[in-house]
């Protein structure tokens, strides 16, 4: 017992920087055991880098039209060919990454906290609060999301901003339901009972005890949703209700390439491949995150 007394002085809560560093290295270590997940995360990292350095990577201006070079097949000069206005498709794809990443991040940042708070509050307080919040969630959930997004985009005017708002409006209910389900389990845990016994206020219990337990599954769900968000954004772009020309939005690019698809396949296929690769990467990354963050889904 005597040697215990000496290390009193070092008892402090660990600093936030050290905590973040610790958990990051721990997750990276676990990630090293998941080669497929690693590929997903590497693709996502490349996408983010491409989005940040788009002007440096793209060989041409994405909006520059050279009508004499229209509809050129892929070659060394134009890696992914050119479209009907002679714009370089590769440069447009590179700049389109920015729009995609921007859409996905904005939707996730809006939807995550809203879904989490609504779900956790409903699950923790229960009773009438739960009934009201969950019926509201059910109502939004009962709309087909693309149709609702279409209606919103049509009502508010087409554009990237409205597309983000429209997708966000339909994307929070699944998150809220998930958070509520988690909160229902956690609120009956002994550590919550103990917290009540030592006088923790309901808000303290909600945000320091229950919400941290719901965040991992919400993050996983958000990552898996990102693939769907990309597809919805591309669908809106395809229908002309997302980003407006001449912005190089991938869905809008497919839409314009559709007219020449039989003779000039690359105009539609190249942005299609970009969408496929990105949503696949988000799906794989989401699956891996679930394995890492949620022990219940651990692989045997």
């Amino acid at each position: 017992m005597s040697n215990i007394v000496h290390d009193d002085a070092i008892i402090r809560p660990p600093a936030i920087g050290a905590r973040i560093w610790n958990s990051t290295t721990r997750i990276l270590h676990k990630l090293a055991d998941e080669p497929l997940g690693m590929i997903g995360f590497i693709i996502l990292a490349i996408l983010v880098l491409v989005a940040i350095f788009a002007p440096l990577i793209a060989p041409y201006d994405p909006a520059a039209q050279t009508l004499s070079d229209a509809l050129q097949p892929p070659s060394l000069a134009h890696l992914a060919g050119t479209d009907e206005f002679g714009r370089d498709i590769f440069s447009r794809l590179v700049h389109g990454t920015r729009i995609t990443i921007q859409t996905v991040l904005s939707v996730s940042v809006i939807v995550g906290p809203i879904g989490l708070v609504i779900g956790v509050v409903a699950g923790f307080f229960g009773g009438r609060t739960d009934a009201i919040l969950m019926r509201a969630t059910d109502i939004v959930l009962s709309f087909p999301s693309l149709i609702l997004a279409l209606a919103f985009a049509a009502a508010l005017g087409a554009g990237l901003g409205t597309a983000i708002v429209a997708i966000s409006l339909t994307a929070w209910p699944p998150i809220a339901r998930l958070a509520r389900a988690e909160a229902l389990v956690v609120r009956n845990a002994d550590y919550v009972a103990a917290a009540r016994l030592y006088g923790a206020s309901p808000l303290r219990i909600l945000f320091l005890y229950i919400a941290p337990m719901c965040i991992p599954s919400v993050i996983v769900r958000l990552t898996l949703n990102m693939a769907g968000i990309i597809l919805t954004a591309a669908s809106l772009g395809f229908l002309g209700l997302g980003a407006q020309p001449p912005l190089p939005e991938w869905g809008a690019m497919i839409s314009s390439g559709r007219k020449f698809m039989l003779d000039y396949w690359w105009v539609a296929v190249m942005p299609g491949l970009a969408i496929l690769l990105t949503s696949l990467a988000f799906n794989i990354a989401g699956d891996t995150l679930r394995d890492l963050l949620d022990p219940r889904h651990a692989r045997s």
Binding site: I11, P13, D190, Y191, A194, A195, Y198, A200, S201, Y209
Partner: peptide
């Protein structure tokens, strides 16, 4: 196994009653 918050360090778990009060 159920009476300590899995994401709180032992120190936090012990400090929480005093902070909550």
């Amino acid at each position: 196994y159920g009476s300590l918050h899995p994401r709180h360090r032992i120190g936090t778990a012990l400090a929480e009653p005093i902070r909550s009060m």
